[in-house]
């Protein structure tokens, strides 16, 4: 199809502008992590070797002198988000299988139930955080990793169930039935036939839940204060100090905290996008 010049300019004008808006902050963080304190506080510097001399100071500091300043928080976030993602994936498979394979659940149609699962997204975290604070206090879960894992899993499970229901429904039930006629148990069929077929969906759910738990801020802020503080809280605390902020350190921490997810996102983008699109529109 032949396109007019104006349309071509619109397309690439918009694409270039938006790319620059996205890329420039990323460029800025990366270069800042290679600046020294004087190169930052003397005003903005843009180009390495021209404006400022790149230095490995931040990275050296990060990995040699001050690992205990940030490593515990990364460990907390890693444990919490991986366990949460694993639990939500398993629970999501279980519930999704039930909703996909049985039309009715007591008085409800499965579809109605699926809708109910998503209703919780409407409620603001501010509303849910107050009772959680009281409950965590009573159960001695405040400032524990177990507490955050339970909470994040409970928040992610309905989403995982709902998303995986769609994927499992797309696997024809006849495949399972014919395998069962050959003498396999239902559980065996699920593991050897259904699971591999919905693996793309499962990977998507796993990464989305992982990213959600890794990036979550509100509940971590309310429910943790020292032992189980996560990366977002740590990062936010860096700039609320009264002394001047060590921007090169903040930048390096920021890169370190987002790098794994960006790589995962690049490698697994198809799986994740399918999950995100299905999660919103259907």
């Amino acid at each position: 199809m032949r396109r007019s010049k104006g349309a071509w300019f619109f397309t690439y004008g918009v694409l270039t502008a938006w790319s620059l808006l996205l890329l420039f902050p990323m460029y800025w963080v990366v270069t800042t992590s290679f600046k020294t304190r004087p190169a930052i506080s003397g005003g903005a510097t843009f180009v390495p070797w021209v404006d400022f001399d790149p230095s490995l100071q931040a990275w050296r500091e990060l990995f040699s002198e001050s690992t205990d300043r940030w490593l515990p928080f990364f460990a907390n976030s890693l444990i919490i988000s991986v366990v949460t993602a694993a639990l939500a994936s398993v629970f999501g498979m279980m519930g999704g299988y039930a909703l996909a394979r049985w039309r009715r659940l007591g008085p409800f149609a499965s579809a109605q139930f699926g809708f109910l699962l998503l209703g919780q997204r409407m409620f603001p975290a501010a509303l849910l955080a107050l009772p959680m604070l009281i409950m965590f206090q009573d159960l001695k879960l405040l400032d524990t990793r177990v507490g955050l894992i339970l909470l994040y899993t409970a928040f992610s499970t309905p989403f995982a169930v709902w998303l995986l229901t769609e994927f499992i429904r797309s696997v024809p039930v006849e495949i399972e039935e014919s395998a069962m006629l050959d003498g396999s148990s239902r559980l065996g069929v699920i593991f050897r036939i259904t699971l591999p077929l919905v693996l793309p969906g499962l990977i998507g759910v796993f990464v989305l839940v992982l990213a959600g738990a890794w990036n979550e801020y509100f509940f971590a802020l309310v429910l943790t204060f020292s032992e189980s503080v996560t990366v977002p809280i740590f990062l936010a605390n860096q700039i609320n100090q009264t002394e001047s902020v060590g921007w090169y350190f903040v930048s390096a921490i920021g890169i370190l905290s987002s790098f794994p997810l960006i790589i995962a996102a690049l490698v697994l983008q198809r799986f994740i996008q399918r999950g995100l699109v299905a999660g919103a529109v259907k």
Binding site: V29, W214, Y217, L235, A236, S257, S258, Q269
Partner: peptide, 15 residues
Amino acid sequence: FWLPLMLSSVLVTVV
């Protein structure tokens, strides 16, 4: 264009 989705709101705000 979809990378920002993987970044935390805190990181975006700080940076």
